[in-house]
Design a protein around this nucleic acid. Sequence first.
DNA 1: ACATAATGCAATTTATATATGTCATAAAGT
DNA 2: ACTTTATGACATATATAAATTGCATTATGT
Lengths: 67, 67
Amino acid sequence: MKNVRLKMARIEHDLSQEELAKKVGVTRQTIGLIELGKYNPTLSVCIAICKTLNKTLDDLFWEEQSE
Amino acid sequence: MKNVRLKMARIEHDLSQEELAKKVGVTRQTIGLIELGKYNPTLSVCIAICKTLNKTLDDLFWEEQSE
DNA sequence: ACATAATGCAATTTATATATGTCATAAAGT
DNA sequence: ACTTTATGACATATATAAATTGCATTATGT
């Protein structure tokens, strides 16, 4: 399922997928695919994203509330 | 770094690594290595562990407090 | 209408999470 | 002393996350 919370947090920080990717240390495609819910990042990538966006794992990755 | 919180949560539930692994749907080695902090599980494995142990991602995988 | 930026999509390659199997060891029970 | 259970360590194999590259499309701006 799509990760809407991640996308919203990114946009709150006024970052494009590419800019966030650069800060996190992954590629644009990785961010894009995570937002689309097309896969399954590793914990280290999740944590790096959270730290960049000042969120916690629960904020962004725990129990997508609705589809 | 070691994941002490995971080990404690597992023991609270009176499960061996092997029993937890079976419930989560991974191998004993995977659980063992995560507890030892020797790698980097995927998000889906983290979530499966949390659900089995009635914890959240932040409870078990966010910001190891010490060493 | 034409640029440009942001995003989705798809193929291939590389790195690594995870599985599988086996052995060693330490603790607990008998 | 001998089992049995739990765990750590290691090697190899497989599945898949992630990188890399390129192209299509949809905005947005001019």
